[in-house]
């Protein structure tokens, strides 16, 4: 942990001038695109900044980091990163990213998705990317709603919550995204919050380091719709509301508390564990395919011939 603190809080700059305590990450922004399109107080912006902070510590430039996103407010954040950025179709970023990664294993590929994008329309791709253990880092910004389309219920919306499509309160049970990814075979699973950029930074760093499919869920706030509709207050209130995760945080970022029961009468956003929730190791898709340096090294020729013979009967 302290390593992250050291880097994140490092005072950098030359002697005898001004040194930036924060703001160093801005060199990785596409300034021509700023200010960004997110609503005031939107948690996604905090995550973008936190992500850039980590990246600015790790990389000089992002020439070899590709960001792939779906459709949604969350997915939009990649447009502000000065890298190779691929804003795909709703729910499909993991498919594009898988192809890109297999064609170009030399690239670091980061997928940004939303709870609607990654769990609803793209849920199938998520579980299969996890199953294959393709070496990607998938960051899912969970604001418990469909922000971009105006605040409809998402597969993460808790029971009882009000959205534009659940005027009487949500009647469908939500997904636990991290558990889903874990069950599907992701080899690194973590959860973080927009409220704690530092923790996010640490987990994002670990996810980037991890070889295999790493899944990082970030609890974020949709101030415009989820906050308003459910009277959770303004951006700052929602952000502070994330302090409810406090009991779930442990120094080693790995303790798992019990989830509080939720009644349908009253939307209670659950307390979900924060931190690294799962870590395991198994062959990556690249390894099973025998891919090296952008090209498949090929299965040993003999083996393939055998296989072909077997199939040809």
């Amino acid at each position: 942990m302290s390593t992250v603190m050291d880097t994140d809080t490092a005072v950098h700059g030359a002697a005898g001038g001004s040194v930036a305590i924060t703001g160093k990450e801005k060199r990785l922004l596409r300034h021509a695109m700023m200010p960004h399109m997110l609503c005031p107080g939107c948690g996604h912006g905090i995550v973008l900044d936190a992500m850039l902070s980590v990246l600015s510590e790790r990389y000089e430039d992002l020439d070899n980091v590709a960001f792939v996103a779906g459709i949604g407010c969350s997915s939009r954040i990649i447009g502000y990163i000065d890298a190779c950025t691929l804003h795909t179709a709703h729910g499909r970023p993991l498919s594009f990213a898988t192809g890109l990664k297999l064609a170009r294993p030399d690239l670091t590929v980061v997928v940004i998705t939303g709870d609607g994008d990654g769990l609803s329309i793209g849920g199938n791709h998520l579980i299969h990317a996890a199953r294959r253990n393709v070496d990607l880092t998938c960051v899912l910004l969970n604001n418990e709603i469909y922000g971009m389309t105006g605040g409809q219920a998402a597969p993460t919306t808790v029971l009882g919550a009000y959205t534009s499509t659940t005027p009487l309160g949500n009647t469908q049970h939500p997904f636990d995204a991290a558990e889903l990814a874990k069950a599907a075979g992701a080899t690194f699973v973590a959860r973080s919050q927009s409220y704690r950029p530092q923790v996010f930074g640490e987990l994002f760093s670990q996810a980037l380091d991890h070889v295999g499919f790493s899944f990082l869920e970030v609890m974020s706030d949709c101030t415009e719709y989820f906050g308003r509709t459910n009277r959770f207050g303004e951006g700052a209130d929602m952000l502070m509301g994330q302090a409810r995760y406090e009991p779930s945080i442990d120094a080693d970022l790995a303790r798992i508390p019990t989830v509080e029961p939720v009644t349908i009468k009253q939307p209670v956003r659950p307390v979900l564990p924060i931190g690294v929730l799962h870590r395991s190791s198994r062959l990556t898709l690249e390894e099973t395919l025998g891919i090296e340096g952008g090209r498949s090294s090929g299965v040993a020729d003999g083996k393939l011939d055998d296989a072909v013979q077997r199939m040809d009967g």
Partner: peptide
């Protein structure tokens, strides 16, 4: 740095002047 880190719009930067005699 808290304000800057939690600003969703990256609108704040915090700088500290280092005196010229610090090398």
């Amino acid at each position: 740095g808290l304000c800057a880190r939690l600003c969703p719009d990256m609108a704040i930067e915090i700088w500290v002047d280092t005196p010229a005699h610090v090398g």
